[in-house]
Amino acid sequence: MNKIVKYILIGVLVIGALWAALFFIKSNSKSAVTYETQQPFMADIEKKTVATGKVIPQDEVEIKPQISGIIDEILLEEGVKVKAGDLIAVIKVVPNEQSLYQAQGRVKNAQLAVNNTKIEYERNKTLFDKGVISSQDFNNLQLSYNQAEQELKNANADYQIIRRGSIGGSAAANTNIRATVSGTILEIPVKEGDQVIQANNFNDGTTIATIADLGKMIFEGMVDEGEVGKLQVGTPLKITLGALEGTELDAKLKFIAPKGIEETGAVQFKIEGDVEVTDDVFIRAGYSANASIVLEKKEDVLVIPEALLQFDKSTNKPYVELAVGAEADQKFERKDIEIGISDGVNVEILSGLTEEDKVKQWNKTEPIKKGEEEEGADGEETEE
């Protein structure tokens, strides 16, 4: 019995030794990580920011009625180009009963005054012809008669305007809604039968149509407070439209808001830029757009890919690792550097490197094998 146990123990030890040997061989059979190098090079570099916003007409004019009433007829449609003076719609007047009654009363009073002064005028004219009264007295009576007739005309005109919206035969009737500027009709928010009111001290009035010149467009967007201080009026912009892929328009910054607006915890500043609209591109009002703005630009400077940078954990200063000796030796040493602007891909080198230096590239040249994925979570190998 003791011999059997002894043989079992010996067998277990032999198997364990073989397993340990195989594990050791497998662990040490992994190929060494080989790092490639890159050299700094000369290039142009730009630091950009992107402002999100929309493209809108420079001026939008709202057409409002001169009198309250009901839309009787709409003659044009949205999207139609118009000239100043073109008829857009016609309003049917629904007079206020109290105002209409008062206007009728003024007409009757004016008619009574005319009848009375007419009798006096005709009676005194006979006396004047006989030489009974002086010319001055007759002239005064004639003036009173003429004034009474004019007052009757004015009262009749007021009555017609209140009842129908215009005087019969007038070419500039208040009921005719005409374009005040040339452009494209963007919107007609009313329809036939809608009631509209004129502008007054307590109401802006009903908008019959909105007109704008689509040949004069501006970009309106928002910029973060960290970048607004680097902007200047006149800075060129590149406008890309979400609705028109591959279309890029030139623009110039013309306005930077002096006051910011807080949105989701960040302060944003409104900017505007004049867009150069070309004849081959039709831009609709309200297109969403992005404006690319160059904050800083340097030409022919020494740069390296930003992926080659490392940052010291204690000082947060940048450094790279340079190859020492032959590249096959895979020996590197740390080199502190000073960097300038970055475009997100390349970064400017102010000092610490030359074009002859070979900078360590941190990505592995071999794909990660299955079984090494868990080790990869601990970070890449770093030699200092």
Rank of each mutant, 00 (worst) to 15 (best):
M1H: 15
M1N: 11
I4A: 14
L22A: 12
I25H: 11
S31M: 10
E36G: 13
E36D: 14
I45T: 01
A51F: 07
T52P: 04
G53Y: 05
K54T: 11
K54R: 09
I56T: 12
I56A: 05
D59C: 03
V61A: 07
V61S: 07
I63A: 00
Q66M: 08
G69H: 00
G69P: 01
L87Y: 08
V90Q: 10
V93Y: 03
V94M: 09
P95E: 04
Q102Y: 11
Q104N: 14
K108L: 14
A110T: 04
L112H: 09
T117H: 04
K118I: 00
Y121D: 04
Y121T: 03
N124K: 10
F128R: 10
K130L: 08
I133R: 05
I133T: 06
N140Q: 13
L143K: 10
A155Q: 02
A157G: 05
Y159D: 01
I161S: 02
I162M: 04
R163P: 00
R164Y: 03
S170N: 12
A171P: 13
I177D: 06
G183C: 12
T184A: 12
P189H: 02
Q198K: 15
N201M: 12
T207N: 08
I211A: 05
I211H: 06
D213R: 10
G234I: 09
I239N: 10
G242D: 15
L244W: 05
E248Y: 07
F255Y: 14
A257T: 07
K259P: 02
G260H: 06
G265E: 04
F269Y: 15
K270Y: 11
K270T: 13
E272Q: 13
V275E: 08
E276W: 02
D280C: 02
I283Y: 00
I283P: 01
R284W: 07
I293L: 14
E296D: 11
K298F: 05
E299Q: 11
D300F: 02
L302I: 01
L302Y: 00
L302P: 07
V303P: 04
P305R: 03
A307F: 01
L309M: 01
K313G: 10
K313A: 13
P318T: 04
Y319L: 02
A323L: 00
G325K: 00
E327W: 01
D329E: 06
I349T: 02
L353H: 00
L353N: 04
D357R: 02
G376P: 01
D378W: 09
E381F: 12
